[in-house]
Design a protein around this nucleic acid. Structure first.
Lengths: 242, 242
DNA sequence: GAATCTATATCGTGC
DNA sequence: GCACGATGTAGATTC
C-alpha cells in the first residue's frame, strides 16, 4: 500500500522514484532549488519544500503557507529523474504550451509512495444547480416566464438561460452564485446586445444573483438591464426584485 | 527537522497532531471520508487520500490526479483534532465566509511533520511585467504615444494603462499576457465607454495581446476598438498592427 | 472589509 | 484542439 524511504542516497532515491513514477502518489520532503520556464519564468532558491508527484503527471511544490503551490505542472506532464554529477534532478516537461519545471534536490529528508484509489465525490451549490432549480420552477424569475433554452450559444458566448416573458419578450438571463460584479454585467450585456441586434426592442436582460456590487448595479441600470436578487442557499421565498 | 509516524493509533496520532498543528507542515496519508459545508456543500466517500496541514491554517486534500485539491480550506482556518467514539476527526473552520471542513480518518498509514523555511522566489512574465516594459518604451504602442497613468481607477474598473496619442486623443489600453477573448474586449469596452461619456469622440481603446480569438476580434471591431498584436515573450520588433 | 483583476490560473464542455 | 465560462477559484491591490 505504501513505502517510506528516510534520508535516501541520491542513487537510492533515483531507483525508488523511477520504480514508482506514473504508478503511485509520491511525496518528497527535501531541500531544493527550482527553475520554471514556460508561460512565465520563475526561480526559487534552495529551501525545504514538499514535492508531490501524481500518477497523472501532475507535479506540485508547496512551501509553508498558502493554498496555492509555489510551482507546479498540470496533468499530462512528462516527469523524469536525472542524476548529473551526483545531483538528483526532477524534470517535468509539457509540450503545449512548452513548459519545463526543474527541481534540483539538494538534500532529501524523506520520500513516500502510496497507492490511491479515488472515492465518490459529490458537490452541490454551484451555478449549475441554481439554473437547474429555476428551470424546474420558472416562476422564480417571474410570473409567466417560459424557458426556451439553456447554455444557448451565440457568437459572443453561451447564455445561461434564454426564455420569453408573458408579453412575448425574449429574456436573456445570466446567473451568478455569488455577488455579481462588473464582469457579470458586461457578460450579460454581450448576450443582450446580440439579441437586440436581431430582435430589436423586444428583448430583456436579467442578471440573477444573491447580491450585486454598487458600481455593477449602476452600470446595469445604465445599460437597460435588470437585476433579480435570488439566494437559493437561503429560501426561494426571499426573492426580491430591484 | 522532521518526524515520521507509521500506522499510529488514533491516540498517538491525536497527540502528535496536537503537538505539531500551527507549527510545522503536516502530511497525512490515510483512508478518510470528508464533508464540506460552506459556499457549496460536498461529500467524499471513504478512500485513501493525501492530507496537508500547513502552519498558516491551510488544509489541502489531494486524490491521485489533478493539480487541484479535492477539498481544501484557505489560510487563516482554525484546525482542531477530535477523538469521538474512537474515531479521529480533523475539523477546519473558517469564519468569513462560514465554512466547515471535516475529515473523518478511518485508517492512518503515516503522518509526517517538518519544519519549512521558505526561500527566495522570483517570477517574471506576468501582465504586470508587460505593462512595465511598455511604460519604459511607449513607442511600442505607437509613435507619439504618451503615458498618463497606470491602473487608472474608474467606476467601471481599473484601466491597465491610460495615455494620449499624437493627435491628442485619450488612449485606453487593456493588456492580456495570453490570447485575448470576449471577456477582454468587454473589459476594455467598459473603460472606453466611460471615457467616451466624458470626452466624447476623442477617445480610443486598444487591446494589446499576443493574439485574439476570432469572435473577440469581430466584437472588438464592431465596438470601434483596436487590436495591437504584441508578444513580449518573443521580440518587441515583431509588433504588428491589425 | 468591499471591489476589482490577474493567474504559469485549472477544469469541464461543446463544437 | 480551440473557445468560452465556472470555480467553495486564490491572491494581490487599492480604496
Amino acid at each position: 500500500m505504501y513505502s517510506v524511504l528516510l534520508e535516501p542516497t541520491n542513487e537510492q532515491a533515483k531507483n525508488f522514484l523511477e520504480s514508482k513514477l506514473r504508478k503511485e502518489l509520491i511525496v518528497i520532503f527535501a531541500d531544493c532549488s527550482i527553475n520554471y520556464v514556460g508561460r512565465a519564468t520563475s526561480k526559487a532558491d534552495n529551501a525545504s519544500r514538499l514535492i508531490i508527484l501524481k500518477s497523472d503527471g501532475t507535479v506540485i511544490v508547496h512551501e509553508s503557507t498558502k493554498r496555492e503551490p509555489l510551482n507546479w505542472q498540470p496533468p499530462g506532464t512528462e516527469v523524469s529523474v536525472f542524476l548529473i554529477d551526483g545531483n538528483l534532478i526532477i524534470r517535468a516537461t509539457r509540450r503545449r504550451p512548452k513548459e519545463v519545471l526543474e527541481i534540483f534536490l539538494k538534500k532529501i529528508y524523506y520520500i513516500t509512495s502510496s497507492y490511491i484509489n479515488d472515492g465518490e465525490f459529490q458537490i452541490v451549490g454551484r451555478e449549475l444547480d441554481i439554473v437547474d432549480k429555476v428551470i424546474k420552477n420558472p416562476w422564480i424569475i417571474e410570473d409567466g416566464f417560459k424557458v426556451i433554452g439553456r447554455e444557448y450559444a451565440t457568437p459572443y458566448g453561451k447564455i445561461d438561460l434564454l426564455g420569453v416573458d408573458s408579453r412575448g419578450n425574449y429574456v436573456v438571463i445570466e446567473f451568478k452564485r455569488a455577488k455579481a460584479g462588473l464582469q457579470a454585467v458586461s457578460q450579460l450585456y454581450r448576450y443582450y446586445m446580440y439579441f437586440v441586434e436581431i430582435y430589436g426592442s423586444k428583448v430583456r436582460g436579467i442578471l440573477v444573483a444573491p447580491d450585486i456590487t454598487s458600481h455593477a448595479l449602476d452600470l446595469l441600470k445604465k445599460l437597460g438591464l435588470e437585476f433579480l436578487k435570488l439566494d437559493l442557499s437561503k429560501q426561494v421565498s426571499l426573492v426580491q426584485q430591484y
